[in-house]
Every structure is written in structure tokens, then in C-alpha cells.
Computed example of a mutant assay.
Amino acid sequence: MANPKTTLYVGGLEENVTEGVLHAAFIPFGDVKDVSMPLDQATQKHRGFGFVTYLEKEDAAAAMDNMHNAELYGRVLTVNYAQPIKIKGGEQGWASQPVWADADTWFERQQQEEELAKLNAEHEATVKAAEEEERKRAAKGDVEEEDNDMKDDPMAQAEAVAVAQQSS
């Protein structure tokens, strides 16, 4: 199924309904791109539902509004937007991949996120401590002495600018 906003699920189909009948029932609402009715492998008959794909999402919306709870061959239809196909498997969606195959990558990602959160918390604590130390020095009047030291040290100047920017 292409776009869930252009593909409709049509449920409650009577067993004599064919793709041609379904196409004819939905064509009044716009250009139909595709009609499919999955077959039951044992009986080779459709399974009581189908999918109608329109070229335009507005046509699909109009068909859903008009055909939901409508009657076709004596059966009441259920018409909704189709859900994307969910393939069982890992994050990559491979059907041959077991569900637990990506567990290691998930755990690694969780550990990385926790580590990043710890580093961010440590960084914030360091910045707050530096700001508090700067406030204490300013209160004591030691800032003037530090300004003289910073004239000779470019790294100290850069740190002071960074602290000033973060506090504003």
C-alpha cells in the first residue's frame, strides 16, 4: 500500500464481490489507481475485505465519507483509511529477522542516551558551580585582580566570555 491517506480498507464484502464490482462501486468518487482483494490460500476466495487506492487523497476522503456503512450486495461496508503493512521482525522490518535480533542495538542506544544525560547533568553542575564561584568573587571584590590576570591569558578571557553568555 502506498499512502495511507489515499488507500482505503473496505471490509464486510460479500463473497460474490469481485475487484471489478469493487472498482465500479468506488469510481464515482475519483480516479481509482488500484483495487486489491487478498485471497484466502485454502479456498482461493477473497477474505471479505479489500483495498481501494485513489490517485488523490481528497477522492479517498470523499469515498470513505460516502461508502462507510453503505450497502453492497446486501452487506454493510466498513470503509476506513488503510493501515500500513506491519512486518514482524526487527527495526529494519525484515521478515526473516527475529524480533529480538535488534535487542543489542536497542540496549546500546539506551546506554548511550543514559551516558549523554549524565554528561549533560555534570556539565550543568560544573557551569552552575563556576557561576556561583564568580558571584562569590564579585561579592568580595576579587574581580579586579582577576581582570588583570585575564589580560595575559587568552583562555581565561574565553572562559569568562562563555560564563557571561551562559548567565544572560
Rank of each mutant, 00 (worst) to 15 (best):
A61R: 12
N69R: 05
D59T: 12
D59G: 08
E71M: 05
R75Q: 11
G50T: 15
A25H: 11
G89K: 06
G50R: 13
S36G: 06
T53H: 15
A82M: 02
N80V: 02
T53G: 10
A62K: 10
N66W: 05
H23W: 03
F29C: 00
P28K: 09
H46T: 07
V79Y: 14
D40V: 07
H68W: 03
A62W: 07
P84H: 07
A63Q: 10
V52K: 13
T53W: 14
S36F: 10
N80C: 06
F29E: 00
A42T: 08
V79D: 12
E58T: 13
L55D: 11
G89W: 11
L72R: 04
K86I: 11
G50I: 15
A24P: 06
M67C: 09
N80Q: 06
T43H: 02
A24V: 02
A60V: 04
V35P: 02
L39V: 07
K45N: 05
N69V: 14
K33S: 09
M37E: 01
A42F: 14
L55N: 13
L39N: 09
D31F: 15
N66C: 11
Q41C: 07
G74A: 04
E56V: 10
I87L: 12
R75T: 07
V32C: 01
G50E: 12
M67D: 04
D40G: 06
L72V: 08
A60P: 04
T78R: 05
A62Y: 06
E71W: 13
T53Y: 12
F49E: 08
V32N: 00
E56R: 14
T43C: 01
A60H: 05
D31P: 05
Y73I: 04
A62L: 10
G50F: 15
K57F: 09
D34T: 08
G50V: 15
T43I: 05
M37H: 01
Q41R: 14
T53A: 14
